[in-house]
Computed example of a mutant assay.
Amino acid sequence: MPETFSACQDCLCFCFELGTAFAISLTGQILKVSPTLAEELGYRQAELEDKSLKALLGPEGLTAARAFLSLSETPRTQFAVRLRARGGELIPALLFACRFKDHVKVWVKLGERATERQKRELLIREVHHRIKNNLQGIAGLLYNQALAHPQLKELLETPIRQINAIAQLYSLRSQGQDRVFLCQLCQIIAQAGLSLSQVALTLDIPYLQAIEVQDQEAVSIALVLNELLANAIKHGQGPITLSLRKQAEEAQVRIQNPSPKPPAFDLAQGVGLGTGLQLVKALLPQDGSATLTFAWEAGEMTAALSLRPPLGALCTPKWAIVSGIDFA
């Protein structure tokens, strides 16, 4: 019997040395790491040995390991974790733990590591998240200046709205979304515009068609919509409706509000344009994929932005677009 037990122990040690494995004390200290596992994670053995489990396991795995160590009556277990490689990358793995008298041996089955494309996508998401945070920080600083200097409030409201709109667009991108949809831009602009105004706004987007906006033009379209809504809030009277419609091979965003008199400007000729509409005219693509018209009838002003391919492409819907949301 002793010889059989000794042979079993030798076999375990042999497998430990050749495989991906590590040993820990009953208090959670790393006693030994196999050369293979250390190499897979990008470490030298000495860099992990005598360290806490925090050096090797992510938060969820650490909790699971501590739970196993606290249950002395449980001889073996297995659980999924993420192992911490050099550089901070967390690699999925399945651990098989076996309790001995004074230590625990853990055999590791490593999952697939992130591909170069996945790493690049994660990096891009992180960059977008930081851009969003920085933009919101800038908007916050401007808002504090508006509070401290009431005489500048009206002047600062425009850049605050613009920055918040762009920040929300980067927020979408930081969530891993690689496509930008017109319905989302409408919602973003509504929220950004009303953060500085108490005007009642109805967001009316009843269709299920998903309308994708070219990624490189998304910021420009967001700013155009932002200026049109700001113009309606500033110069209109009463509630505003922002609607999205599909018409044949184009999508059209309409911003409608009561107005006592027709517009005193001509967008096509560039006559009588304020700073906001000058920005709108400059941002509109010159390839004919976007057109903007203004119409006044029976005391109501309508700004209609039409988008056609390739700028606005109709595509398969991925979710139901909201309808009839009132921002009052």
Score class of each variant (00 low, 15 high):
S72F: 02
R99S: 08
A190T: 13
A148Y: 01
R44D: 15
I233V: 13
A251R: 04
V322L: 15
P59H: 07
S323Q: 13
E49S: 05
L142M: 12
K105P: 03
I233P: 01
L292V: 09
L311D: 08
I124M: 12
P285H: 06
P310M: 06
P262F: 02
A139F: 03
I189H: 04
R254Q: 13
G238D: 03
E217D: 12
K246Q: 15
C15Y: 09
C183V: 01
I163S: 05
R130K: 04
R161N: 10
E116P: 09
Y207Q: 15
F79V: 09
R113D: 06
L37K: 05
P310T: 06
F327P: 00
E40P: 04
A320Q: 15
L279V: 10
S220W: 06
T241Q: 02
Q269C: 10
I24P: 01
A192W: 08
T115C: 05
I321P: 02
S6E: 14
K32I: 01
V271P: 05
S259Q: 13
A148N: 06
G276H: 02
L110V: 09
H149Y: 13
A248N: 11
F294L: 11
C186R: 01
R44C: 10
Q151V: 05
L182R: 03
K261R: 13
A230S: 14
L267R: 08
Q214P: 02
D266M: 05
G276D: 07
E157H: 08
L314Y: 10
A21Q: 09
L135R: 05
G140T: 07
E249R: 12
F265D: 04
V104M: 00
Q247F: 07
E300D: 08
G288T: 10
L26K: 08
K281W: 05
P260S: 10
E112D: 14
S72T: 11
A218D: 04
L41D: 08
E227C: 06
A264L: 12
M301L: 15
K318Y: 11
Q198F: 02
L83A: 04
N133S: 11
K119D: 01
E121K: 10
C11F: 12
A304T: 13
D326M: 08
I205L: 14
Q136L: 15
G111R: 09
P317S: 06
L225W: 03
A248E: 15
A295Y: 01
T293R: 14
Q191T: 12
K54R: 13
C8D: 02
D215A: 08
L123I: 10
A114I: 02
Q168Y: 10
L135W: 07
V33L: 07
R125Y: 06
Q78M: 10
Q256I: 12
G58H: 11
N164L: 14
R245C: 04
L18C: 12
A21Y: 02
Q269M: 12
T4M: 11
A328V: 11
V219T: 11
L277W: 10
G61N: 03
